[in-house]
Computed example of a mutant assay.
Amino acid sequence: MKQIINSSKAPAPIGPYNHSVMVGDLLFISGQIPFNQATETLVTTGIQDETKQVMQNLYYIVEEAGLTFEHVVKATIFIRNMDHFSMINEIYGSYFSAETAPARECVQVEKLPRNVNIEISMILHR
């Protein structure tokens, strides 16, 4: 049976989906973009700030589920410009220890929701 987990601190879904779904010991988190729920604005001040906001949104959902980033087993990063990879990687990497970092892929895409530059989804194991 699946359990829906949403966080009031993360941006509200803009379509027919939820922030995350727990099935057994796995938590599947929908892709998060750099939208700041507190100010109701998109963060557009550079890829580092955008990445920090995405990771903060993911944190809110992970926290609501009673987990931590140490529970992340897989992350998928979608970016519009692969030239930003090193800056994104620096911010993203600061949330994990090298010894327990999750599996991951990073792909460049042509367009993302609301024309943002980054979106990240995650899978966690409880």
Rank of each mutant, 00 (worst) to 15 (best):
P113H: 07
S8R: 08
S97V: 08
P11G: 11
G66E: 00
I33C: 10
T39E: 14
H71P: 02
H125N: 05
I61E: 15
S20D: 00
L124W: 04
R104H: 09
F85V: 08
V54N: 14
V54G: 15
H71F: 07
T39A: 12
I29R: 00
A101I: 14
I14L: 11
T45N: 12
P102M: 03
E63W: 01
Y92M: 13
S94F: 08
Y17I: 06
D25H: 14
D83T: 11
T44W: 09
G66P: 01
L124H: 04
R80H: 11
V21K: 08
A38F: 10
A12N: 11
M87P: 06
G15K: 01
N81L: 04
N89F: 15
Q3P: 06
M22E: 09
I91D: 04
Y17K: 04
E50F: 06
D49E: 14
I47S: 09
I77D: 11
G93N: 13
F78I: 00
T44N: 11
Q37C: 06
R114N: 14
G31F: 00
K74T: 12
Y95H: 09
I5V: 13
V23Y: 10
L42P: 06
E64F: 03
V54Q: 15
A103E: 12
R104I: 07
K9V: 02
M55W: 05
V62Y: 04
M1T: 08
A65L: 12
Y17T: 03
D83M: 13
N117I: 03
L58K: 13
P16Q: 13
E63N: 05
K9F: 11
M22K: 14
F28E: 08
N18T: 09
E64A: 14
V21P: 04
N115R: 05
Y17D: 07
